[in-house]
Design a protein around this nucleic acid. Sequence first.
DNA 1: ATACAACTTGAAGTTAACTTTAATTCAAGC
DNA 2: GCTTGAATTAAAGTTAACTTCAAGTTGTAT
Lengths: 134, 134
Amino acid sequence: MSYTITELSKMFHLPASTIRYYEKIGLLENVEHVNSYRRVYDQSHIDRLNAIECFKKALLPLAEIKAFFTYEKDMVANYEKILDMMKTQEEKTLETMADLEAGLTHLQKKIRYYSLVNEAIKNDSPLPNWNDLY
Amino acid sequence: MSYTITELSKMFHLPASTIRYYEKIGLLENVEHVNSYRRVYDQSHIDRLNAIECFKKALLPLAEIKAFFTYEKDMVANYEKILDMMKTQEEKTLETMADLEAGLTHLQKKIRYYSLVNEAIKNDSPLPNWNDLY
DNA sequence: ATACAACTTGAAGTTAACTTTAATTCAAGC
DNA sequence: GCTTGAATTAAAGTTAACTTCAAGTTGTAT
């Protein structure tokens, strides 16, 4: 089965320009151009894009993702590098998650405070004091 | 108590240039320059920087953080906008956390797989098959 | 045969959040 | 008075990941 760039674009909610860009920087490889013109994709590109999306969610920079695909071509020679990369990234992701959680807590405190401000104003009662709450 | 830019820089692990930059874009306000030269900071700036760090952890763009501080100056007039902003951001943060978790799972699968590859190579046994695992 | 929509290209532009640079300014120690 | 060193400025540069643009190509419908 083969696909056009528009089909991939819809499948992955990525603008066509981004898909071309990924090819340009070497993230997508072996893209045939039918009649040496329009791009044609196959299952391998879908798999690749799925992998890219996963790594992007884990916040890997595109350059790292590209490196991974390169290493993966010779797994036996590079499994240590890959393992290293993944473990480093795992730690970074965990750190980011911890930061996000701290940030979320801060946001939720603000939300609670300003909800009370809201109520106070509607009831014409005195404004709450941040320091009384936290 | 008053502080130099170098002291703040150390306190917050931020380069002095970043602290100057925050002032330039209006995130830090009312910074006195002693003898109209060197910057002098006080507790209010430390509080402000702490707040900035919290919001940054929640991934608020600096422009939003600045807007928050502006709104906060007239809480009674702006509590609705603030509440709105915080709730929107809370959702975004939760989404990002979900993405991160998905990404983390993907990473951990890769780590598991390449650990098995590692073992297989060390034991001269056949390489594991990704599809057998997942 | 022509118009049209979808696709192509390389190059330049965009955005956020900084960072770097080069030239200048004080204040303090010798 | 002179040197040194930490701070200052405005402006330009950086990075990642795209996006936009202008000009050109192709297959299909009229």
